[in-house]
Design a binder for these strands. Structure first.
Ligand code: NAD
Ligand code: NAD
Lengths: 208, 208
DNA sequence: TTCACGCTGTGAATTCATACACAGCCTATC
DNA sequence: GATAGGCTGTGTATGAATTCACAGCGTGAA
């Protein structure tokens, strides 16, 4: 079970790091797989498997060293040069994203926003400048942007995805409820909030 | 492979319905599994399996009747009396949710908002009244609310989840990046946007 | 020094979702 | 009426992710 961490593993690694970052502030030295498992909401065996995937090793008596582990996870997760993201669609959701991610993580930040509405272009939202769509390819190159976030209406999502790809972006986080047709070179992940809410309503009714 | 639709299947059913709703407006009579599969971004076999799960059947020559199918999916997905949701945390993300879901679907709507900030209580945001946290148990009963949406900071998420459960909610959509400890009676789904963005950045770098 | 405990690391088993592959069928066509 | 084509419905296979289960080990106690 070696090789690069899988899709699911990478997601959990991200969560582990966030939880451990909190814990390091409380001054804990070590953490056991079952402790991390409890706060992360997974099994202890799962945690140990994930640790194997990043080559972290713990001691049977002290568990995993928290600081070492955060460092190890960061080496795996963060690009050494950092990653920069562009947000397309400065609407309600887009503004929420901008406000949330501004200045949160040095290695991963939203450095540009795009919108087609002329009255939004040129404005600075949450410390992030909004550009016109025409400027995308230039801005993506200048700012070394590798990630795009699509927060436009679903009717515009496919066009935006293609523009992002053409500009050189290699990862897309898509909030629009459409299946994007993109090159297999480009990684994409969809977050469909409507689907999620409908699913919760479905199973809430079933568990009544 | 009978029995109730699985977690993943329910999610796809929701997506199918949305896609088919658009299609019915264009006047299409029937749809083949491979057509629906293409727009949904899944395989044709997957579509047919999902159709089996809801007991929908198509004809080898005409495919599935679109109107019948939407009806069939709605019978499966929608509670006959409708589902009503409460949003907790009228911040950036909460307001985006409110504006997006207002008046969108008759069988699933956000009918109340809650926040602890006194200056938000009593205001109407996107047609939805904001209540104080003290009013939760009463409002949940009065409005027959079965679903809760958690959009508060992660430090407050567990407390809010417990309050929602105590009030009688049986399904929770959680945006805070913490694993909720809730009764197994209650269904919960997490949407962790930070994790999703970190994952996209990770695989974007890898596919460079 | 010896022993017992509890955790790590990991092969094996299990579970679950998805994809394959084809029998059966309906329709259109000749 | 016979035939060919293409799609549905589904048993089976494949593949991936998770869990089980335990050997190995370091530590602290007796
Ligand atoms: N809670 C939510 O907000 C929510 C929930 C579920 C799904 N979504 C999805 O997220 C996406 C965004 O939702 P929202 O609520 O922020 O929408 P919104 O209407 O508030 O914002 C959309 C923004 O995109 C811009 N835009 C439109 N077409 C564009 C184009 N071709 N190029 C560039 N910019 C363009 C608009 O000017 C606007 O600023 C939608 O696809 C929606 O389906 C949102
Ligand atoms: N793009 C985003 O907005 C984004 C991205 C990733 C994660 N999240 C998560 O979503 C959640 C909400 O994010 P946000 O950006 O909307 O935050 P926000 O700070 O804009 O809003 C939080 C709201 O919750 C209210 N609140 C705080 N404590 C409360 C309590 N105990 N009871 C009731 N209300 C309370 C606050 O008054 C505020 O209105 C957070 O957990 C965050 O981690 C958001």
């Amino acid at each position: 079970m070696d090789g690069p961490p899988s899709y699911e593993t990478v997601g959990r690694l991200s969560r582990y790091r966030r939880l451990l970052t909190r814990r390091v502030e409380t001054g804990s030295e070590g953490v056991y797989s079952h402790e991390l498992a409890a706060v992360a909401g997974v099994s202890a065996a799962q945690v140990r498997r994930d640790m194997m995937a990043v080559g972290a090793n713990g001691s049977p008596t002290r568990g995993y060293n928290v600081e070492k582990l955060v460092e190890c996870l960061s080496v795996e997760l963060d690009d050494p040069e950092g990653s920069r993201a562009a947000l397309v669609g400065v609407g309600n959701l887009g503004r929420a994203m901008l406000s949330f991610f501004q200045g949160r993580r040095p290695k991963l930040s939203i450095v540009a926003a795009f919108d087609r509405e002329p009255y939004k272009v040129g404005r600075v939202v949450c410390g992030c400048r909004c550009y016109s769509m025409d400027e995308m390819s230039q801005v993506v190159i200048d700012k070394k942007i590798t990630v795009g976030i699509i927060a436009v209406p679903s009717s515009a999502a496919q066009a935006v995805a293609s523009e992002l790809e053409d500009a050189g972006v290699r990862g897309i986080l898509n909030f629009a409820p459409v299946a994007l047709r993109i090159s297999p070179e480009t990684f994409s992940e969809d977050i469909d909030m409507t689907m999620a809410l409908e699913r919760v309503a479905y199973f809430a009714g079933r568990n009544s």
